[in-house]
Amino acid sequence: MIVLVKQVPDPSKKVGMTEQGTVDRTKSLPIMNPFDAFALEAALSIKDKYGGKITVLSMGPPKADEVLREAITLGADEGVLLSDRKMAASDTLATAFTLSKAIEKIGDFSFIFCGMQAIDGDTAQVGPQIAERLNIPQVTFVEEINFNEDMTATFKRVIEGGHEIVKSNLPITECPMLITITNTAKKPRLPKITGKFKAKKAKIPVWGVKDIEPDENQHDKFGMSGSPTRVKKIERPNSGKEPCRVMEDGNVEEKIESLMEHSKINSLSTD
């Protein structure tokens, strides 16, 4: 099994902006994308029951090996980091191309798990794009996986206002697939001390573009040159409203009182 994890800025910290109006990522402390923790848990649950090896794969700056070590702490067997300046500024298509090249190098698998989306980009695109690139089926937004006696699998997939049950018509051993996991799935486990020791010792190989694609003619498929989409601009939206009236006078009780008087919500609620 392969689990894809991404290091993302901690959403509980404020995003800083640089003077150029781009997002300042140096200020936010990174964490493992919360959805990926659920994806890892899905893989670990299968490993608990049926065995198998879990390889975690991430693409990012050199320090992204932290999330791979975190995954090993939780029970993953090994990690691989894709890190190369040529991979920078990749959009989802270039990211999916890069990750699928690495997956081909890692070799056989029965499942690729990813979080349903990453909380920084929120696109939910990379998973399906990898599945297409590898020519394997996908089941997205999965909350629960069950295996039948004939080793076919059923997936509970979250849809608008409910869910659907998707069944694989072939045994999973004959049909590798990519699954994206929701945060309504089984809650991620807590780390064990032994895991921490293992993670500390783990050697995490770092692969660059040359390691996954020896053909230099293909190198323009990585990073910015391999990305059809471009960010034209990023801006903080202007609400165009009158400035907010912040209650400033007096103690909390008095502020509440003047808020109630100004907003007249009490009269509205008793209409």
Partner: peptide, 18 residues
């Protein structure tokens, strides 16, 4: 959101989500 990324990858074009 399930089909569009896969179609974009098949056609090899860009896609913006949401």
């Amino acid at each position: 959101r399930d089909m569009a990324p896969r179609i974009a990858a098949r056609i090899q074009t860009g896609l913006t989500a949401d």
